[in-house]
């Protein structure tokens, strides 16, 4: 009985490890360290939290924030909205399981523009902290003169 349980646990462990490896797929965003971000001298430290945190900045810039202009960026910006887009295309479930919350990227095969932009990759990237932009108020870009 004990032996059987051990075997079951061992099989489960191997299966889980396999799933984990398949999911990670060596696609990780690796922001460069010790870099100057935008106009300020803030430093990206590790990048994971920066990306997670930056979700808010993504959400800050909706099409309405730019005076109602509609473009791809508007769609892309509503990454929050991207869930809805995914839902609209019938892969809402996939959207839920495909989101790598730790790395802040989309880990499945991307099918929408928003997913392509946020697809997990092992390419290096450098986060820009939009919180340094003092003209963004309440998540809104000011209208152009």
């Amino acid at each position: 009985m004990k032996t059987n349980t051990r075997i079951i646990w061992a099989v489960l462990g191997i299966a889980l490890a396999g799933i984990a490896a398949a999911c990670s797929d060596s696609k990780t965003n690796t922001p460069s360290k010790d870099i100057t971000v935008g106009g300020d001298s803030s430093t990206a430290t590790g990048g994971k939290s920066a990306k997670g945190g930056a979700t808010s900045s993504g959400g800050t810039t909706s099409s309405s924030a730019t005076g109602g202009t509609t473009s791809d960026s508007a769609g892309a910006t509503s990454v929050a909205g991207a869930t809805g887009v995914a839902g609209a295309t019938g892969v809402a479930g996939a959207s839920g399981t495909c989101e790598d919350t730790a790395k802040g990227c989309y880990k499945c095969e991307p099918t929408t523009s928003a997913q392509i932009l946020r697809a997990c990759t092992d390419a290096s990237c450098i986060p820009f902290d939009n919180k340094t932009l003092t003209k963004i108020v309440n998540g809104m870009l000011p209208a152009l003169p």
């Binding site: 922001p31 993504g58 892309a76 450098i126 986060p127 820009f128």
Partner: peptide
């Protein structure tokens, strides 16, 4: 420069 598009959280 690396460019971070609307909706992205990192610049490439």
């Amino acid at each position: 420069l690396a460019y971070q598009h609307y909706g992205q959280t990192c610049g490439y």
